[in-house]
């Protein structure tokens, strides 16, 4: 094989790799991940595809919250120091776009991940 042919081969390979990387960047998808924020700052990230149940102890604006990921794809607030307990009674979140909110604690759990295809949620 000539040296020039080898160069051509390497160039084609690089071009191919660039195309693949771009493709991945354009179409990257995340698995369902729950992001826990207090005052818009991320305090925890939970992989909902994990089969291990997980308990998180975080601190909200009012006080401590206990968040449980059940290992079956759902995440919920198990305990919270808030007067109305709306967050504790909220149906567990599991699909992208789902949220569990504790307003008094300024805490939001959001399931992120690819596409609900929805721009906004009327609720």
């Amino acid at each position: 094989m000539k040296r020039s042919d080898r160069i051509v081969g390497v160039v084609i390979l690089i071009a191919l790799m660039l195309t693949i990387v771009s493709w991945i960047v354009m179409h990257r998808t995340r698995g369902a991940v729950a992001v826990v924020r207090v005052n818009d700052k991320v305090v925890a990230t939970v992989d909902l595809t994990s089969l291990e149940p997980q308990t998180l102890h975080i601190t909200g604006v009012l006080g401590p919250l206990v968040i449980v990921a059940d290992g079956k794809g759902s995440i919920r607030v198990a305990e919270a120091t808030c007067p109305d307990q709306i967050c504790v009674h909220t149906i567990p979140a599991r699909s992208p776009g789902d949220q569990v909110i504790c307003v008094p604690n300024h805490m939001v759990i959001t399931v992120e991940g690819k596409g609900t295809g929805i721009d906004a949620l009327a609720q």
Binding site: I91, P92, A93, R94, S95, G97, D98, Q99, T116, G117, I118, D119, A120, L121, A122, Q123
Partner: peptide
Amino acid sequence: DWKVGIRDPRGQGIIGY
């Protein structure tokens, strides 16, 4: 052309848009 989800009043997620 906005796609607005209508929240499921008895669950998480949407019932449609």
